[in-house]
Structures are given as structure tokens and as C-alpha cells.
Design a protein around this nucleic acid. Sequence first.
DNA 1: GGGGTTATTATGTCTATACATAATAAGCTG
DNA 2: CAGCTTATTATGTATAGACATAATAACCCC
Lengths: 227, 227
Amino acid sequence: MNGWEAIRDDVRARISAREWVPGALIPGEEALAVSYGVARATVNRAMRELAGAGLVERRRKAGTRVAQGAARRAVLSIPVIREQVEALGQAHSFQILTFGEELPPEAVLMAMGLDAGRMLLRIDTLHRADGRPHALETRWLNLGAVPGPLPDLMRITVNEWLLQTVPYATGEIVFAAEPAGAEDARHLDCAPGAALFVTERVTRTDAGPVTWVRLAHAPGWRMRTVL
Amino acid sequence: MNGWEAIRDDVRARISAREWVPGALIPGEEALAVSYGVARATVNRAMRELAGAGLVERRRKAGTRVAQGAARRAVLSIPVIREQVEALGQAHSFQILTFGEELPPEAVLMAMGLDAGRMLLRIDTLHRADGRPHALETRWLNLGAVPGPLPDLMRITVNEWLLQTVPYATGEIVFAAEPAGAEDARHLDCAPGAALFVTERVTRTDAGPVTWVRLAHAPGWRMRTVL
DNA sequence: GGGGTTATTATGTCTATACATAATAAGCTG
DNA sequence: CAGCTTATTATGTATAGACATAATAACCCC
């Protein structure tokens, strides 16, 4: 491999080999450009990449130094449940348990940034993998922030529809371990109090908060990622 | 704001406004460069950024189109426990429970990619926040992959020392909900079977696998991130 | 029309050059 | 020497131009 990627890899290797230890100053772009025999822009590209990955810190005039105490970062990909299940080689099916306008818990409205007393559409879905319960989804949907009519919910999950309809929203996710409540236990076919991996997600667009979801995974579910 | 950031933001806004829907083709760099009145490289920079964020997909000759069904990505920052605790305004303290060479469970050796029967250094640590149990750390350390001698483990946690010593390792992380075992319950001061948020992490460098850690958080711990 | 070759095209990268910007160092002044 | 101003410097960004590369479209031949 050559070009800026080779330079990025070489610098990374030299950091890893402790040629430059955390906190140490790395030679300037000009100097590196000469030593690698490339233009400064090429070195800049490589170093910018490393800075984006958190490996080095760059400041004008101060130069580039190896980051120290940088919080390690991991990129999580949050697939739709259907793909999550199918990636395991299992068949995904789902079943809508609840559908209708209700008054959400105050915590949900607060997380979404909506006024108390606001009614939202509640859609609860049980996801199955090869017929066995996989995850219980509790969703509150703000119809005011989604364009167009609801799809045929027998055919497509709300989540997949939302991904197509309001792409590239921002939001927050919370991961937690929670004991299974009575509802969880009944639908996920586990003992009450069993340790469940739970994710809570709020999604927002320019048009306002779109949805709040709680996803309780069946016991044993593990979320993995690379560092 | 002007320059490539302005273009990036404008394109993002136009995608968000559904001017270009998922799957649709976005005008080529040349065309955009003309319409924005900049050089093609500037448009390229902006579009590359959006592609990196997963908002658009770019293929040579095929052009750039709005990504559809892109798995949403979240960046997790994995701080050292001390900072995690201090960020909550609490005082961090820790206590070493176990220290010595042992034969690790086979699952640990396998996760690290080491041969069965290999002895590793086991270091168990209980982390406290304002004196109350915060997390139980079970660590296996491969001394063959770390340079230099161990630090004074009364003063610095193994993790923080590793961050300074072998920076920028790669690895995998697993997040799970597990019922508290007898050990967990005793040290974390909770009931056996309580739902614990557990992370397991393997760390590797060029010199081989460095460490395997299991971190069991006290009940109620929530990990949050932005989407 | 099927199958293989060639032309076309959008993105990917590199270069040399220029100027902008932020942070530091040096210098000056009271 | 404190405090302000100015020079220096490394990175940040933009430019036009060039060539590379991958993927598609067009073409040709059988």
C-alpha cells in the first residue's frame, strides 16, 4: 500500500513501537513530507486521519503530539433487529402487541423533550428469532415529526420504516442491565428478575423528537464491537 | 461558517429536508463545485466527511447517493473508571483483591488467542465511588506483551498504567447483562442474581494479546452515548 | 442476443502553491 | 518585571491541474 494510507500506518506503527511515546512531539508535516518523499498535503491527510481516530492531538503552532489518556473509542453499529437476527442465521418474525394513542410515562416525555400530558402513539412489538422470543420493543412515536402516513405494520417494522422515512436523525442511546419485569418475563419467556440487556433510544430530527424506544433483549444477548 | 464545512452542512441539511431521498443520486463533485463556487477538492472533502459518517455512499463512476438502511453508528468512549466516577462528582478509590499467577479459564485464553495451559497474572480490583462499590474488575495480564516492570499498584490502576504503557492497542469489547454471581454479589454489595451491566474486553498489540478484563458494574449503572 | 472488449466517467489521490489561523515565542515599553 | 505588541511557526484550508482506479456503459463480433 502506498500514499497517505502507508504514511498513516507507518506513523501508527512507530507510535505503537514507542518510538514516540504519549505526550511526545512528532516531527512537523514539512519534515515528515521530506522524509517520506511526498507533498505536505499527503502527510496532512494521514495525520488528520490519526487525529480523527484520537491517536494524536494536533494544535496549530504547537505541533502534533501523541495523545495521552485518550479515552479509547469504539464504534457501535446499531443494526435493525431483523438484520441482527438474520446475521445469526436465524429467521426473524415479529408480532405487534400494543397499538394506540396513550399518555406516556413522564420520563419518556422528558427524555423526548415534550410537554407533560402529550399523547403519543404506543407500539409494542415482540421480535422473534427462529420463533423464540428475541427482544421486546416498547416504542412511543411522535406522529407530528414524521412525514406521510404509517406503513402496513404487518409487513415492515416501525424501526425499518423510520430509517427510510426520517433518515439521519440524531439522538441518544442508553445501555443498561435491568431485571425482567412482569411484562418482560411473560413475553420474553424468562423468569421475572432475570438479567436483561436493555437499550433505550431517543431519536430527533429538525422537525422535533421522533421516537423513544426501549428494547429489552432476551437473557444471554451480548453486544459486541471492536476497539 | 464557510469552506468545506459549510458545504458538508448544506448537503446534510438538504438530505435531511428530503431534497435527496435515500438511494437517490447526488450531483457529481464537478457540478457541486460549480454550484457552490469552489474547487472540486473542496466538495470532495465535504462529501468524504459525509461518507465517513455513513450519510452517503460513494462509488467510482457510480457517483454519490444517499445511503439507505445504513446501520446507525454510535461512538462510544470508554473512559478509565476513575474518570467515569469522577465525572459523576464522586471520589474514586480502589482495592486490589487478588494478585498472582494462575491458570485462567479456557474461555479467557481462547478469547486472547493463547494456548491452553498458559499461566497469566490475575489482578482483581474493586472500584469504589464515594466509598460504595462501583465495579468489580477481573483482569488477566499477559506480562510477555507489556514492556517494563509493573508499577506501584497501590497508586495507579492497572488500566491507567496500561494506557500509558501500551497505547493504541486494538481489541474487542462485549457488553452484556449478567446475573450477579456469588463473588459479584459479595463485593458489589448486591443480591445474588441481581442484573449487572458487564463489559468484557480483550486488548492486543503487535507484541501479542495484552489483557483480558471483565468489568461488572454495580446495579443501576447505565452507559450512555450519542447517536 | 450473448459474451467479451474497449471507452467513458465519477470518485480517489497526489502535487505545488498560496494564504488563513491560532498559538507560542520574542521583543518592546513603561 | 509585568503587560502589551509583534513576529514566527505549525497546522488548516483552498486552489488548479494531473493521473489513477473502479465501475459502468457502449461497442463489436460471433
